[in-house]
Amino acid sequence: MLKRAKRIVVKVGSQLLSGAEGLNLEFIDELSRQVAKLREAGREVILVSSGAVLAGIKALGLNRKPFSLAEKQALSAVGQPYLMAEYRRAFNRFGLEVAQVLLTAEDLRSKERFLNAKNTFEALLKFGVVPVVNENDTVSVEEIKIGDNDNLSAHVAVLTDADLLVMLTVSNGIYDKDPRSNPDAKLVPVVERPEELFSSCDFSCKTSFGTGGMGTKVEAASKAAKKGIPVIVAGGKEPDVLLRIVSGERVGTLFLPSKKLRAKTYRILYLMKPKGRLYVDEGAKRAVVEQGMSLLSKGVKRFEGQFEKGDAVEVCTLDGSVIGKGIVKCSSESLYDSKVCIHRDDFVLTGD
């Protein structure tokens, strides 16, 4: 499965990119060498790279993470050119050009923008360019924020129909507890049910510069795996880690693909932020859950929030238990003037 992977998304965390005097240029050089080797072997590589805020912190001589969204946006704006300049320098040594791709959640939620971004990636890869992706922190607000590059990498893997997602981190994989403070921590080599890790492993620790932690990696890996994409979380400082992974060597933690969700289902579940809640009676619940029918407005007994046609909402029982998520065919103001509230093709069962 790994040997056959032609298109690979590689996510690089902030800690790997952090050096004593700013960006870790030695790591960037080594990463570019391995990617160049993959390209020589006929594989396509897309990088999802943290490090812009870190580069901005170092450039301005700060010794702390940003306190606010505005500070993060400012530091990202300062650091992004530094980060891209170093990637361009490193990849140019092997005759490869890089492209900066900045995304927000809104770019992925909208079907039109999703397809446009997909076409842009296809064109870049056709030109032989290595796309370097980051969240567009400079313009992101809470409403359109993805939040961490672990989840961004999963979304990019889905967007580009990748064959493999590799998350490189300072840890050599997923452990049952933090190996830095627990010498008896055990590596989890293969994961079939990611949700079970949250009850059996301790993911409370975060890195000093990173946005997420191992918990967000498991969350992101679960999303990609449900779209049929295998995921590996591995140590970025391991020698030739990318080359060893694609050779089939057991490295890090492998998340096995479980099923292949439709693109629309993936967007509804993981990209569209619910703008409200619909509370339905037992008859409506049976119709959508057991019979796979559309949700009629007469089955909605009350609602919360304000939404427009095309927005996502959660569907709940009268006691508040979430049963699904869907795209409404009407606004909150015209809810009871429409016969069909959510078409069956736009509804996904979730459960609590």
Rank of each mutant, 00 (worst) to 15 (best):
D240C: 10
S258A: 02
G283E: 07
K237D: 12
Q291E: 14
G236H: 12
P257W: 04
I245Y: 03
P230N: 07
D240P: 13
D240M: 13
I245S: 03
G235T: 12
R277L: 01
A287L: 09
V280F: 02
P239I: 14
K227F: 15
I232R: 13
E249L: 05
D281A: 03
V251A: 01
G248E: 07
L269W: 02
V251G: 04
L295I: 13
R277C: 01
L243R: 14
V251T: 05
V251K: 14
M293D: 12
E282Y: 02
I229K: 08
F255W: 04
R250Y: 00
A234N: 13
G276L: 02
G252Y: 07
L269D: 01
G283C: 05
G252W: 05
R286F: 01
K264L: 08
R250L: 01
G292W: 11
A284K: 10
G235A: 08
A287G: 03
G228E: 10
L278M: 09
E238T: 15
G252S: 07
I232Y: 11
I245R: 08
E249M: 09
L256V: 15
R244D: 04
E290Y: 11
L295F: 13
R244G: 02
Y279M: 02
L261E: 07
G252I: 04
L271P: 03
V233P: 12
Y266W: 10
P257T: 06
K237C: 06
G248N: 09
K273G: 00
R250K: 14
V288L: 04
L296P: 13
P257L: 02
Y279K: 02
K285W: 00
G283L: 03
R286C: 00
G276H: 06
V246R: 10
K237M: 15
L254N: 05
A287R: 13
Y270K: 02
R262F: 00
T265E: 15
A263P: 04
M293L: 15
K227T: 11
A263S: 08
V233Q: 12
G276M: 03
L243N: 14
E282T: 05
E238V: 15
V231S: 13
L243M: 14
E282C: 02
V280Q: 09
L256T: 11
L295C: 12
L269A: 06
Y279D: 02
F255R: 06
G236A: 11
E249R: 11
I232L: 15
P257K: 03
K264T: 05
V231H: 11
A225Q: 13
L271T: 05
E290N: 14
L271W: 01
V246N: 08
V289E: 10
L243Y: 07
S247V: 08
K285N: 01
G235N: 13
E290W: 10
L295T: 13
A234H: 10
I245V: 12
I268T: 06
V280R: 08
V246Q: 05
L256P: 02
E249D: 12
G292M: 07
Q291M: 11
V233M: 07
K275H: 06
K275S: 04
V288W: 06
T265W: 00
P230Y: 11
G292P: 14
K275Q: 10
P274S: 03
A263H: 05
G236D: 09
L256A: 07
V280L: 08
L254V: 12
S294K: 14
S247G: 09
P274K: 05
P239V: 13
V280S: 09
G228I: 09
K275I: 00
V231E: 12
Y270L: 00
G292C: 12
E249V: 05
V251Y: 09
V246E: 03
A284G: 10
G235Q: 10
